[in-house]
């Protein structure tokens, strides 16, 4: 298998691994309209990693 194909396979595996990791950390899991009282941030993004 050519190096380009191996690199592409590794890239795909890294994307899948990254997606799995972010998912398992609950990233982007909060609903819109949820606000961190401590930081004042809201929305679907980095809400709620409080403490």
């Amino acid at each position: 298998m050519s190096p380009v194909r191996i690199l592409f396979l590794l890239l795909c595996a890294a994307i899948l691994g990254g997606g799995y990791y972010l998912s398992s950390q609950g990233i982007w899991g909060a609903s819109a309209g949820v606000t961190s009282i401590r930081t004042g941030s809201g929305g679907m993004g980095g809400v709620g990693r409080v403490k």
């Binding site: 997606g19 972010l22 398992s24 609950g26 982007w28």
Partner: peptide
């Protein structure tokens, strides 16, 4: 209680 967020996996599927 949820162990996973679906959005990163959906984004990953979107990339592929």
């Amino acid at each position: 209680g949820l162990r996973f967020s679906w959005r990163p996996l959906a984004g990953t599927a979107g990339v592929f």
